[in-house]
């Protein structure tokens, strides 16, 4: 299998390069799985945490200029570890955590902030996908800054005003659906009471 430098791995994640993603999975996932399954977690948990950690790193690369002072393996492990500790706290299993022998680095607050944001994004997208086809398209086109006149033309609405009205109706429908989901309130509560688990 081809080897990659840290820079190539980060750039591969940023570019969604499937070869790099396969490389990361094949080389680094096992260590994360061992840590989680030895600390009250299942294989399914390990899979979720790995994906969440990768998603956090991906988002960090989109927003910041991420420069690592450790190997990518150590960084990914540290992010996964932090996210799993957060899960243990959420499940009130924090006391059963056994200190791990692997190397990890102290991470800044932005990791948990991004993780929380990602969780909310996932929830919003789930509810968005439950909207009617027509509502999804109105919102997508509107947020892509397509002029209302063109949205009306594309979606066959009778007027610009109607396109605007539909946009508002669809957005309200989406917001209500999100607010009615208990997970939304759970996520909001967790965001406010975030703790640090580093080191």
């Amino acid at each position: 299998m081809q080897e990659y430098t840290v820079e190539e791995i980060l750039s591969g994640i940023r570019d969604k390069d499937t070869n790099v993603l396969d490389f990361i999975y094949k080389n680094y996932y096992h260590q994360i799985k061992v840590f989680i399954t030895q600390n009250q977690g299942s294989r399914e948990d390990a899979k979720d945490i790995y994906q969440d950690a990768m998603l956090v790193i991906f988002q960090k690369l989109q927003h910041d200029n991420l420069k690592l002072t450790c190997s990518f393996n150590t960084y990914l492990y540290s992010v996964s570890r932090l996210l799993w500790l957060k899960q243990l706290e959420k499940r009130k299993l924090w006391k059963q955590y056994t200190e791990d022998a692997e190397n990890f680095v102290t991470l800044d607050e932005s990791i948990l902030v991004l993780y929380d944001l990602n969780e909310r994004y996932k929830l919003y997208q789930t509810h968005f996908k439950r909207l009617s086809f027509s509502c999804q398209k109105v919102l997508e086109l509107f947020l892509a800054r397509i002029p209302l006149k063109e949205i009306a033309r594309i979606l066959g609405f009778k007027s610009e005003q109607y396109a605007k009205k539909r946009k508002h109706q669809c957005k309200e429908k989406l917001v209500i659906s999100i607010k009615n989901d208990p997970e939304f309130h759970e996520l909001s509560r967790h965001t406010q009471t975030n703790k640090q688990y580093n080191g």
């Binding site: 991906f58 990602n118 968005f128 997508e140 947020l143 999100i178």
Partner: peptide, 18 residues
């Protein structure tokens, strides 16, 4: 945030890739 989540196709694509 809801608007950003709808707009962020990169996020969705990467999540689906994983």
């Amino acid at each position: 945030e809801v608007n950003n989540a709808i707009r962020d196709k990169n996020f969705t694509e990467f999540k689906d890739l994983l």
